[in-house]
């Protein structure tokens, strides 16, 4: 079973030198912070003032029923959707907007792109590029965003693929990989950019049950090595084992934010209790 993720070091100073170097505690209270985020699509208010922060090296699990705004929140944090009000802060610095003579304006797409490259995003449906091999998918951010040479990018990407247990599948195209392998490639594609934080949008929801474990194993390894993570998930077991804090979102607002023991053992909100009863 060469395709199983190895128990090793997903984060390595060689590959993630920048992130490791900047991970001194105390440089900012939160790595990623949402401050009173509002988002609406037409008349539908999807996020009604969401605030929370993630400390460096922490894993935040986000639970909630479908349609509660979890995915929208992640897209706002990844700067893929502009917020209507509120702030997204990365290491204490407000991102996604610029201030010119006291007025706030959305950044042009080209500048936003730079800021996005500091945040890793993993999607429910993998969204790998089908015209590229596994290696090509991991390389593309390095060559097209970081401006690295093909040779250098290939070397880094190869190492990262090995870390998610897919060294043997580097030359496989996306259609030749299982769902679990595709999601591990997607994780490698995001990791290789040295993100300051990794966002996961239901990373195992589109997988066959027997493939969930290999993806969760990679994510747990990542968490153990100190990656800051926000994980929208329905995997209660993963949240209990790995998360430092668990958030419950309902109808576009955070209704519970607690350490896993308290969240699962003694939830304060009736809504949370009902949700947990339904999914467990």
């Amino acid at each position: 079973m060469t395709d199983q993720p190895p128990i090793g070091h997903l984060l390595d100073a060689d590959v993630l030198g920048e992130a490791a170097a900047s991970s001194k505690p105390g440089t900012a209270e939160y790595v990623l912070e949402a401050v009173d985020i509002h988002k609406r699509y037409g008349r539908n208010e999807v996020l009604r003032g969401v605030s929370f922060g993630v400390h460096r090296g922490d894993v935040k699990a986000v639970l909630g029923p479908s349609g509660s705004g979890k995915s929208t929140m992640l897209r706002c944090l990844a700067l893929l959707e502009p917020v209507d009000a509120g702030e997204v802060r990365l290491e204490g610095r407000r991102i996604g907007v610029r201030e010119t003579s006291g007025r706030l304006a959305a950044l042009p797409e080209r500048v936003l792109a730079k800021e996005r490259s500091e945040i890793g995003m993993v999607f429910q449906r993998f969204n790998l590029f089908p015209h590229l091999t596994a290696l090509g998918n991991v390389m593309i951010g390095l060559t097209e965003v970081r401006g690295k040479s093909k040779g250098e990018a290939r070397e880094i990407a190869q190492t990262m693929l090995a870390r998610v247990g897919l060294a043997q599948r580097a030359s496989s195209y996306v259609s030749e990989l299982s769902g679990g392998q595709q999601q591990r490639v997607a994780i490698a594609r995001a990791l290789v950019m040295n993100p300051k934080v990794m966002l996961f949008d239901e990373p195992t929801s589109a997988l066959d049950p027997e493939l969930v474990g290999e993806v969760l194993a990679v994510m747990e390894e990542l968490a153990r090595e100190g990656m800051t993570m926000v994980v929208v998930t329905h995997e209660i077991g993963f949240a209990k084992r790995v998360a430092d804090r668990v958030i419950m979102i309902d109808a576009g607002a955070i209704i519970e934010d607690a350490p896993p023991d308290q969240f699962f053992g003694n939830p304060q909100q009736e809504r949370t209790r009902k949700f947990l009863d339904a999914v467990q």
């Binding site: 797409e109 792109a113 590029f129 951010g141």
Partner: peptide, 20 residues
């Protein structure tokens, strides 16, 4: 999702189009 993933990586609009 293709455009979304390319944007999330930090690719400029021109790169998103030409490379993805």
């Amino acid at each position: 999702g293709q455009r979304l993933a390319a944007r999330a990586l930090g690719m400029s609009p021109a790169r998103v189009f030409s490379k993805v």
